[in-house]
Amino acid sequence: MAVSLHHVVVDAHDLPGLARFWCRVLDWRILSEKPREVVIGTDESAGTGICFMPAGEPKTVKNRLHLDLAPDDQDAEVERILALGARRVDIGQGEAVRWVVLADPEGNEFCVLRPKASLIAFRDPPA
């Protein structure tokens, strides 16, 4: 039996607002918008999307699952995402890490990494 990742589901209080934020971050678009479900992705035939569903309670602790973004230019991307409404957060990551921790407008943490060469290796900066 074959299986694939279909959606990453995010609980939200403002489904359309959070979906629009992530569309701007990822350069995706809203594929479906219903009162209790907003789906975003590159297009309807994409392998994986993000689905925003109503949250039952306020967020109170650090996420147990988060997204890692791997841009070509970490500093420029962090500034761009901050301008879209994200904020820097400290979850105990310290100063010596290779990523920047941000939170979306509803407080969901995510990381902006240094450029990656693969799923397991960072791309070394040019010499």
Results as ranks from 00 to 15, higher is better:
residue 1 M to P: 15
residue 2 A to K: 15
residue 2 A to G: 14
residue 4 S to K: 14
residue 4 S to C: 06
residue 6 H to C: 04
residue 6 H to P: 07
residue 7 H to P: 06
residue 8 V to N: 00
residue 8 V to C: 06
residue 8 V to S: 04
residue 8 V to Y: 07
residue 9 V to H: 05
residue 9 V to E: 10
residue 9 V to S: 07
residue 11 D to Q: 13
residue 12 A to M: 02
residue 13 H to R: 13
residue 14 D to S: 06
residue 14 D to R: 04
residue 14 D to N: 11
residue 15 L to G: 02
residue 17 G to V: 05
residue 18 L to M: 10
residue 18 L to V: 07
residue 18 L to A: 01
residue 19 A to K: 01
residue 20 R to E: 01
residue 21 F to P: 07
residue 22 W to N: 01
residue 22 W to P: 00
residue 22 W to I: 00
residue 23 C to G: 05
residue 24 R to W: 12
residue 26 L to E: 01
residue 27 D to A: 14
residue 28 W to I: 03
residue 28 W to L: 03
residue 28 W to H: 11
residue 29 R to Y: 03
residue 29 R to K: 15
residue 30 I to D: 02
residue 30 I to F: 09
residue 31 L to D: 08
residue 31 L to H: 12
residue 32 S to T: 10
residue 33 E to T: 04
residue 33 E to S: 13
residue 35 P to R: 06
residue 36 R to V: 14
residue 38 V to L: 06
residue 38 V to Q: 06
residue 40 I to H: 06
residue 40 I to M: 07
residue 41 G to I: 04
residue 42 T to L: 15
residue 43 D to H: 15
residue 43 D to G: 12
residue 43 D to W: 13
residue 44 E to H: 14
residue 45 S to N: 13
residue 46 A to C: 13
residue 46 A to K: 13
residue 46 A to V: 05
residue 47 G to V: 05
residue 47 G to S: 11
residue 48 T to W: 11
residue 49 G to P: 15
residue 49 G to N: 10
residue 49 G to R: 13
residue 50 I to F: 06
residue 53 M to R: 09
residue 53 M to N: 06
residue 54 P to C: 11
residue 55 A to N: 02
residue 55 A to P: 07
residue 56 G to N: 05
residue 56 G to I: 03
residue 57 E to Q: 07
residue 60 T to F: 02
residue 62 K to F: 10
residue 62 K to N: 12
residue 67 L to I: 12
residue 67 L to N: 01
residue 67 L to Q: 00
residue 67 L to T: 01
residue 68 D to A: 03
residue 69 L to E: 00
residue 70 A to W: 09
residue 71 P to H: 04
residue 72 D to S: 15
residue 72 D to K: 14
residue 73 D to F: 09
residue 75 D to E: 14
residue 76 A to C: 09
residue 77 E to Q: 11
residue 78 V to S: 08
residue 79 E to G: 02
residue 79 E to S: 14
residue 80 R to N: 11
residue 81 I to P: 11
residue 81 I to K: 08
residue 82 L to G: 12
residue 83 A to C: 07
residue 83 A to L: 09
residue 85 G to N: 08
residue 87 R to E: 05
residue 87 R to K: 15
residue 88 R to M: 10
residue 90 D to R: 11
residue 91 I to M: 08
residue 92 G to Q: 06
residue 93 Q to C: 05
residue 93 Q to S: 10
residue 94 G to T: 09
residue 95 E to H: 15
residue 96 A to C: 07
residue 97 V to L: 04
residue 97 V to A: 05
residue 97 V to K: 10
residue 98 R to E: 12
residue 102 L to Y: 02
residue 102 L to F: 04
residue 103 A to R: 02
residue 103 A to V: 00
residue 103 A to K: 00
residue 105 P to K: 05
residue 106 E to H: 02
residue 107 G to S: 03
residue 108 N to M: 00
residue 108 N to F: 00
residue 109 E to T: 08
residue 110 F to N: 03
residue 111 C to S: 01
residue 112 V to A: 01
residue 112 V to S: 02
residue 113 L to M: 12
residue 113 L to G: 03
residue 113 L to D: 03
residue 115 P to R: 03
residue 116 K to N: 07
residue 120 I to R: 13
residue 120 I to L: 14
residue 120 I to H: 15
residue 121 A to F: 12
residue 123 R to I: 04
residue 124 D to V: 04
residue 124 D to K: 14
residue 125 P to A: 05
residue 125 P to R: 10
residue 125 P to T: 04
residue 126 P to L: 09
residue 126 P to Y: 11
residue 126 P to F: 09
residue 126 P to V: 08
